[in-house]
């Protein structure tokens, strides 16, 4: 571990804005900054997750006009400063889905390969946090390029060469400072549901009456999925705007009625319990099946922002009790 003075870190970050697109917490949300004075946290974690950097809500895959097709290029370099360990893990999960051997997604990969993730440890997690359920934690460093820990006037920092080289000349010896207690206190404050074995259990629960029960209060809006750092479903549509025509990729949500509506008019997931099942199955059964990891990182956004208090922790517990 090294130590870095906060003021000097922000000065350096300001200089880096010339070469990098820098994203950081800006009040409630996460966004692009022009100056580090814009960095401000209004809650432990930001509302709109960092997935927007690599998978924007709306993006042109190509533009076309009278046979002239152009694919947008993206050579930007990104720094994501102050994301939380859960969101760093979420990006690692998105990598598994978009950066695959068989179907690499060039749009996602172009942005992702030129990015540096600097995560900040959560010294005081929120009551909605449950990252420890998935083998991660408030001080987890493995999914980010660097982890910083706020110590007042300075940060403790650890990371790979790519991230630490950004701060060349500013890193000091940490003087043997111990963070074990701080880490333990943060971890102990998190109450996570038990999830061990939920993936296998769900395999035989496709027709279980539980889906009707857990989806009753759901009003099928897309708040949970749009704020979720790992939900990546998208729709592709052709759009004409101001004499510009393009094929666009836009976020979609399994909670919407039209999500799987087919051209014939048939909808295999017309009922909301089937769509709730899809959301839960995708995170806790399909993702582990495909990638050996749960598709949820326990950030708690879906709990915090649900208009009717659908609590995924309660759903997990109910499944485990079946």
């Amino acid at each position: 571990m090294k130590k870095i003075d906060k003021k000097r870190l922000f000065e350096r970050l300001n200089n880096l804005i010339k070469d990098y697109v820098v994203y950081a917490p800006k009040g409630k949300d996460f966004g692009k900054i022009e100056d580090t004075s814009e960095i401000k946290r209004e809650s432990i974690n930001v509302r709109l997750s960092p997935k927007q950097v690599f998978l924007p809500q709306e993006e042109a895959l190509f533009t076309f006009k009278q046979g002239d097709i152009k694919v947008p290029e993206n050579n930007e370099k990104y720094i994501l400063f102050g994301i939380r360990p859960c969101d760093a893990k979420a990006i690692a999960l998105l990598d598994k889905n978009f950066d695959t051997k068989d179907f690499p997604d060039p749009y996602y990969i172009d942005r992702r390969k030129n990015s540096i993730l600097i995560a900040e440890a959560c010294i005081e997690p929120e009551s909605t946090c449950f990252c420890t359920a998935f083998g991660s934690g408030p001080f987890e460093s493995k999914d980010a390029d660097a982890l910083i820990i706020d110590r007042g006037d300075y940060y403790l920092i650890d990371g790979n060469e790519k991230a630490l080289s950004l701060f060349d000349g500013l890193l000091e010896d940490d003087g043997g400072e111990k963070i074990l207690e701080l880490k333990k206190k943060a971890e102990d404050s998190i109450k996570s549901p038990v999830v061990e074995g939920i993936d296998k259990k769900l395999s035989s629960m496709i027709d279980d009456p539980i889906w009707d029960e857990v989806s009753r209060k759901c009003i099928t809006c897309g708040a949970c999925t749009y704020l979720c750092p790992t939900c990546y479903c998208f729709d592709i549509q052709d759009v004409g705007k101001d004499d510009k025509y393009m094929r666009e990729r836009v976020w979609d949500s399994c909670m919407f009625t039209v999500y799987t509506l087919e051209a014939s008019g048939h909808n295999p997931r017309k009922e909301k319990e089937k769509r709730m099942r899809q959301r839960v199955m995708h995170k806790f059964n399909y993702y582990p099946f495909l990638y050996d990891e749960y598709g949820c990182v326990g950030c708690g956004r879906c709990i915090k922002y649900c208009p009717v208090n659908v609590d995924i922790r309660k759903i997990i517990t109910k499944i485990m009790e079946v």
């Binding site: 809500q57 009003i219 099928t220 809006c221 897309g222 749009y226 919407f256 208009p307």
Partner: peptide, 10 residues
């Protein structure tokens, strides 16, 4: 707006 349609659904 992020077009989650929570307003409509509520």
């Amino acid at each position: 707006c992020i077009r989650c349609y929570a307003c409509r659904q509520a």
